[in-house]
Design a protein around this nucleic acid. Structure first.
Lengths: 145, 145
DNA sequence: CCTTCAAATGCAAATCATTTGCAAAAATTT
DNA sequence: AAATTTTTGCAAATGATTTGCATTTGAAGG
């Protein structure tokens, strides 16, 4: 997997690289603190404010997207390419929707509303197959909660 | 416009009614503080914590949706029916997408990922027609920034 | 109407994610 | 390796949201 190139004028630090690498590896967008903790675990020295500052910069450069998931009030950060996802309400598992269906709508929206469309973000939530089967097992053994 | 019915066990207070009415009247999802200020202006006595507490309750009951817009870090609250919108990056105008195109995708997502889909939220951002024409006027008179 | 009791409110204080100032450390450039 | 600029860490500040508690209000019954 090709490394992401830093924008002009920014220095390559081990903290910055580690953050980007972690975002590349992870499917789901992460909380700033998760990133901080995961990297600490891996033995990388950094501070939480470094994480925030880097995410901020990367977001402004368009490399990273910041989003709040349903029923959460901490921001999540992910690579811009992983912007549309399915979230399991039970186990919080996240699945990227990679062939994003949005393009088809774009035309329609432009026509109807006259907007120039710059971007979008789609969050879909539901129950993943695993949690679904767990649930149905439960309701078989004990009919009522 | 029919008033929204409160869930069982909750009392009708003037603050609560005013909040719901304001949300009904407004197209765009609002910040808690906007709600507080607008209602104060109208002469309704309430506190910010009352606003938060009500929005919280309404959200848990599914009547209200809480969402963070791009580049904002305060939550917005709107009626569940006004969940999908277009946001102008320039003037922050919000336009509801009322014939939501999502249903068409649902099938596809269910098939591909096996999720039970419970809900979704779509945010699209761009430049509205008004801001667009303002911009092109500017660039005509003074070619380069 | 008057009483009762749960639910709702206001206020002030607490919480918690995120931001910021500043001095020290690390990366480029010369 | 010295000079210059960016980045970092730490501690303190900020700002939205939440919470504890005493008081008020709404609904139900008499």
């Amino acid at each position: 997997m090709a490394n992401i190139k830093l924008p002009e004028g920014y220095k390559t630090t081990k903290q910055r690289q580690a953050i980007l690498k972690l975002l590349e590896e992870n499917i789901a967008p992460m909380h700033a603190e998760d990133i901080y903790l995961k990297l600490k675990e891996k033995g990388i020295e950094l501070s939480l404010s470094t994480v925030y500052r880097n995410l901020d910069m990367l977001q402004q450069k368009g490399l990273v997207v910041k989003a709040y998931m349903l029923n959460e009030d901490k921001a999540r950060f992910g690579l811009a390419s992983k912007k549309n996802y399915l979230v399991c309400q039970e186990c919080k598992k996240i699945v990227i929707i990679d062939n994003c269906p949005f393009e088809k709508f774009k035309e329609e929206l432009i026509e109807v509303h006259g907007f120039d469309i710059l971007g979008h973000s789609i969050e879909v939530y539901g129950i993943c197959p695993e949690c679904k089967s767990k649930k149905s097992q439960n309701s078989e053994s004990s009919q009522n909660k």
